[in-house]
Simulated scan of single mutants.
Amino acid sequence: MVVDGDTLTIDGERIRLWGVDAPEQDQTCRRHGQDYRCGEVASQALREWIGQSAVSCVEVEKDQYGRSVARCAVDGQDIGAWMVSQGLALDYRRYSAGVYARDEASARAAARGLHAGTFEPAWAWRAARRNDRPEQAPPQPACAIKGNINAKGARYYHAPGMRSYARTRIDETAGERWFCSEAEARAAGWVSAPGRS
């Protein structure tokens, strides 16, 4: 049921916890002079805390990948609040408007979890990795059109030579894909990215 520190699967549906951002699975942090896999620690702590308890969720919105973003609870306790108060996730102020800011301040003051050492917020860690990725090669040379889903869920295709082609990355696990022609992309529901030149 726990995918990672801010994602659950319930009845086969992937649910992103609203308003919090936990370290990524392969992210490392540092405490007591040692690196440790803080993403794995967050996931395991959430798994143990939930145990066999029933989880209830109320959807707030859909994310750019079509996943449900929800506030979830165990025995009436908000999972996001628990994760942040334990120092296992951060208040994702970009989306939460600071709902979990007090929980984060409490964890920081008590040096719980991430706050017991040094770490990079998961949102900054992901951005740095995106910027460091080498150019992607299509699975087949003739199929070099990138079908990308933006942060608002819009589906754009990027053909070689288009302004944003080189910096566009395809994440097939998020529903993005490669196309062999613009006609194929349009037939699948993608539209040409703004600014073709």
Rank of each mutant, 00 (worst) to 15 (best):
T9D: 00
D11F: 00
G12I: 01
R14S: 06
G19F: 11
V20G: 11
V20K: 12
A22P: 14
A22S: 15
Q25W: 15
Q25G: 13
D26I: 12
T28P: 01
R30I: 00
R31W: 07
G33M: 03
D35S: 05
Y36K: 09
Q44M: 08
R47P: 10
W49I: 02
I50W: 02
G51W: 10
Q52L: 08
A54N: 12
V58N: 03
V60N: 08
D63L: 11
Q64M: 14
S68E: 08
C72R: 04
A73G: 00
A81T: 04
A81R: 07
V84D: 12
L88S: 05
A89S: 11
R93P: 02
G98Q: 14
A105G: 13
A105C: 07
A110P: 05
A111N: 02
R112V: 00
G113A: 05
H115D: 01
A116Q: 08
P121V: 01
W123M: 01
W123R: 06
W123Q: 05
N131H: 09
Q136W: 03
P141L: 02
C143V: 06
C143K: 03
C143Q: 04
A144W: 04
N150V: 08
A151H: 15
R155P: 03
P160R: 05
M162H: 10
M162G: 04
R163T: 08
Y165S: 05
A166S: 11
E172R: 08
E172H: 00
T173R: 15
G175M: 07
W178G: 04
F179V: 03
S181T: 06
S181R: 02
E184F: 02
E184G: 00
V191S: 13
R196D: 13
S197F: 10
